[in-house]
C-alpha cells in the first residue's frame, strides 16, 4: 500500500466504502423483505393465475415498464430511454473492469458512447419534466432532483472525456483493476475522472 498519494487513499477508501454500503444495504433490505410476512393476498387484479403468467407480468414490468406505459406515455418514453441507454453505457463500462474484455462488452463500445449521450439528454428531459409539470413539481423532493443532477453530471463528464478532453484510459483501467483485484494503485489525477467516478458513492 506504500507509495499511494493522499488523494488516491481518499478515493480508494470511498470506492470500497461505497461498495460496502451498497452491498450491505441491498442484502439488509432484501433480507428484511424476505423475512416479513405477507398474510393477505393483495395482487392488483386482473392478475395471472399461472406461474408462467406471473413471470411474464413481472418481466413486462421490469423490462418494459408496462404500468408506467399505461400511466403516462411521456414519462415512460423519457424513463425508458434513460434506463435503456444507461444499461448500454454500463455494459460498455465493463471494459474497464474486466480482463480480457468479453466480446459482448467490446461490441457495446461504439453504441455505448451514443447511449451515454442519449442518456444525458434523457436525464435533462426528466429533470425538466419534474420541474415543469405542476403535479410532479409539488411531490418532488431534494433527493429526486439530486439523483438526476448527479447522473447528468456523470454523463456530461464522461462525454467530455470521450469527445473533448480525452483522459488517459490506460491509467483509468489500471486504477479500476487495482480496486477490483484488491491491489489498489494511484488514481490518475484527471479532474474530469475525479468528478465522473463518484457515482457509486451515492
Amino acid at each position: 500500500m506504500s507509495g499511494l498519494s493522499a488523494l488516491s487513499l481518499v478515493y480508494i477508501a470511498l470506492c470500497y466504502g461505497a461498495a460496502a454500503v451498497f452491498i450491505t444495504g441491498l442484502v439488509v433490505k432484501f433480507y428484511g423483505y424476505a423475512a416479513t410476512p405477507a398474510p393477505l393476498k393483495i395482487p392488483t387484479t386482473p392478475a395471472p393465475t399461472t406461474v408462467p403468467g406471473v413471470i411474464a407480468r413481472l418481466a413486462g414490468e421490469a423490462l418494459f415498464f408496462t404500468s408506467l406505459f399505461k400511466g403516462n406515455k411521456w414519462t415512460w418514453a423519457g424513463g425508458y430511454l434513460f434506463h435503456a441507454t444507461l444499461a448500454l453505457a454500463l455494459l460498455r463500462h465493463l471494459r474497464y473492469f474486466l480482463v480480457p474484455v468479453p466480446d459482448i462488452v467490446a461490441m457495446a463500445g461504439p453504441p455505448g458512447v451514443w447511449a451515454g449521450a442519449l442518456m444525458t439528454l434523457a436525464v435533462v428531459y426528466l429533470y425538466m419534466r419534474r420541474m415543469t409539470v405542476d403535479r410532479t413539481r409539488s411531490i418532488s423532493l431534494f433527493a429526486d432532483y439530486f439523483a438526476l443532477a448527479l447522473i447528468g453530471l456523470i454523463g456530461l463528464t464522461g462525454l467530455i472525456m470521450k469527445f473533448a478532453i480525452r483522459t488517459d484510459v490506460t491509467a483509468v483501467k489500471g486504477f479500476i483493476m487495482g480496486i477490483v483485484t484488491f491491489h489498489p494503485v494511484n488514481i490518475p489525477p484527471d479532474i474530469l475522472f475525479l468528478v465522473h467516478l463518484p457515482w457509486r458513492w451515492f
Partner: peptide
C-alpha cells in the same frame, strides 16, 4: 405493521415520485 406486512414495507421504500399515479 411494517414488520407484519411486507407490502407496506416495500411501498414505503420504493416510490420514486414519477407522478404516473398523480392524475389517476
Amino acid at each position: 405493521l411494517l414488520s407484519k406486512y411486507r407490502s407496506l414495507k416495500v411501498y414505503m421504500d420504493t416510490c420514486v415520485r414519477c407522478g404516473s399515479c398523480a392524475d389517476k
